[in-house]
Computed example of a mutant assay.
Amino acid sequence: MHIRPWETADAAEVAALCAAGLPLDPYAADYPGMLLRRQGIGLVATDGGMIVGTALGSNRSEDEGSLDLLVVAEDFRREGIARRLVTTLEHRLADQGATRIVVEGNAPYYVWPGVDLHYTSAICFFEDSGYERGRCVVNMDVDLDAISLDTSDDEKRLLAGGIEIREATEADRDALHAWLSAGSGWPPAGWPPGWADEAVASLGREKAGCHLALSEGKPVAFCAYGVNQPHIIGPMATDHAVRSRGIGMTLMKRCYADQRAQGIAVAEISWVGPLSLFSDRLKARIRRCFWQYGKPLKAEVSDGVE
């Protein structure tokens, strides 16, 4: 078994590996290409020239790395392949200055907000590999045929109060990114890192989009969808100054209407909270639960690629 860097020619084989190895994920074949939109570390494990495992990682900050994807073919599990892939990735990240690695999604491009509890072998791997368990986060499903997506009355009400609701376009890219980067809407720490890039990544892309609320021509709320997977809603946020007016729900329903028009019957809200709000308003139900993990990295390591 040989560990080497991911190459462009590996794309189709790695996509097939992900599709077969991640049965809970209908868009798994698209994951490698999506994650590699940004510069990161891609590794594959080969046996007799056949790719039997892959690990992808990236930098979250100067001193923190992220394990973004880990898949090993079913027939080659429990042979130490995952451990060798992850150890090599840890070494590469440490060589780049990371003192810690996390498994919790690295916006704007990520697959999950942690490790799905139903992927038992993955949970066992991280528990046995020195990773510390952190928060539990969830995704919720929304049946788009079970709720009304008509927002016309809400949009009229909001417009009368000075809030314009419309679809975002490429012309909004700079203003949306600047607003989210400034962090004025979520004191004291500002909007979560990566949201600005994640929001604008939805613009001008097939099966993705974003809807905005504007006050005096400036963004005060947004909801994006399809950034990493067509059926996923998020991120979304509303400025504190205009909360409790139904803006966020109006924007979400507009996104859901777009998704339903694309043939999506069930949408998924990623990394969601507060749970009761979405359960009450959208009949959303918890579908997937994820544990987040982290581990300190040693500074003096070798590359590890054979």
Rank of each mutant, 00 (worst) to 15 (best):
D172S: 08
M252R: 02
D145S: 15
I123D: 10
G105N: 03
R287C: 11
D303F: 01
R157V: 00
E268M: 11
I101N: 02
S215W: 01
G33P: 07
S58V: 10
A196N: 09
M1W: 10
I51P: 04
D63T: 15
M34V: 12
V52A: 07
A122F: 11
L282H: 05
R173V: 01
C210L: 15
G134F: 08
T54N: 05
V142S: 07
L89H: 04
G263A: 13
D30A: 14
G49M: 10
L144N: 00
C136R: 15
W112I: 04
V305P: 01
L203S: 00
G134H: 01
V14R: 04
G42Y: 01
A265I: 00
I101V: 15
E74P: 02
N139C: 12
L93D: 05
V242N: 03
M50K: 15
G65D: 06
G40A: 07
H231C: 05
E13R: 11
A94P: 08
R38V: 03
V220I: 14
Q292V: 01
P296Y: 04
L158C: 08
R37I: 12
P187N: 03
W191A: 02
R135Y: 14
S181M: 12
E167P: 03
S215K: 12
W186V: 06
A107L: 07
C18Q: 02
T46A: 13
L56N: 01
A15P: 00
A213L: 06
E198D: 02
D95Y: 11
S302C: 10
G248V: 09
L159M: 13
T54L: 04
T151Y: 11
E13K: 09
D143Y: 06
V305N: 06
A199R: 07
A199C: 09
L17A: 03
A146P: 08
L89P: 05
H177S: 15
A237C: 12
L212Q: 06
A73H: 12
N139Y: 09
L22Q: 00
G183A: 05
T169A: 07
A221H: 02
E206I: 13
M50Q: 15
E164W: 04
M50F: 00
V103S: 00
H118R: 15
T151G: 13
L17I: 13
E306Y: 07
T46Q: 09
D280I: 12
A267V: 06
R254E: 03
I123K: 02
Q39C: 07
L212E: 04
L203W: 00
R83E: 12
A265F: 06
P193M: 09
D239W: 06
E90S: 04
V305T: 14
D174Y: 08
